[in-house]
Amino acid sequence: MRATAETIDIQEILNRKARRKDLLRNIIPFSGLVFIFVFFTVVTQGKMLSSSNLTNLISQCFSVTIVAAGASFVYAHGGMDFSIGPSCGVAQLVAALIITRSDLPIWLAIAACILVTVVTSTMVGATSAYLRVPVFVVSLCMRAICSGILTVGIAESDIAIDYARFSGFNSEVLKAVVLLVVIGVSYYLFEYTSLGKYEKAMGGNVVTAFQAGVVVKRTQIAAYTLMGLCVGIAGFFQLTRTAGVTGGSGSGLEFDIMVAIVLGGFPMMGGSAARLRSVIIGALTITILSNGLVLWGLDYLLVNGVKGLLFLIIVAITYDRTNQNQMNFTSA
């Protein structure tokens, strides 16, 4: 009887600790974002909060946040994709060609843009799953293929589209709505459907997930397809924002996503601790960081150094050390 009471006490303590840890895990990712926002609001003497800058922030965070929402499914199962940027460039190329060289309606250009990235991303996932090639190798190959296509596509000349015709797509209101819809749908899929749960389960332990009945390959490919969908949406808006396709279209997007993943405290290997809000917070943090450093008027020679220091502080605040503590404990 006494033993049972002790057991209950211990269980109560463990539950309390778990609740506290869960609470911290929920709060901590926001602290980096709050820190950076307050920091830049102070050093820019409030310029950060001006209405025109806030509308700029919507445009500036749009691509990376949309793609980050899709990429969270891939990173949740421990995957990655280095081909996001070039495939986004190819999608913009195809859409621009449809717009400039045919009389087809705009919605077809949008559909083609999305289709290109869905196909390339799905191919990365499927090739890795069925040919059992590490995904980073496959995505590097896809990156090279897409870069090649983009180079051939603009070999004669960069392609420009009529900015005025697509100015509606540059409305911050539209972007805010699309952003909210994509985040909302992604949040629902990630947190409340079997797809999101399976992705996280695979990130935790793929063998256990398989033994528990998860169709691993199909789930992996679905994550890449979803990400491709988001890259395509972001790609079309990027095209209308820059009003043209160049060799640099889409470049650097994959690295922005990786930085967003780290800054938001999203576990790089995926697993049950993966939260969609982490990548969204990370994406917002990287945007505010870039915006704030420029607003601040920092000398360009110091930007990279200061950015690195701020990264370090944010990661120190937000990084989830749960597994690290377990490893330290085990090794001790």
Binding site: Q60, G248, L295
Partner: peptide, 30 residues
């Protein structure tokens, strides 16, 4: 950077700091 979008974002933000004019190695309606 080489990315057009990053270039526009940097320009938009710098304009917020209050510029009287811009000289840019870029060309295009955006």
């Amino acid at each position: 950077t080489w990315s057009s979008e990053a270039g526009i974002a940097a320009l938009e933000t710098t304009l917020q700091t209050g510029l009287d004019g811009v000289i840019a190695v870029t060309s295009g309606v955006p």
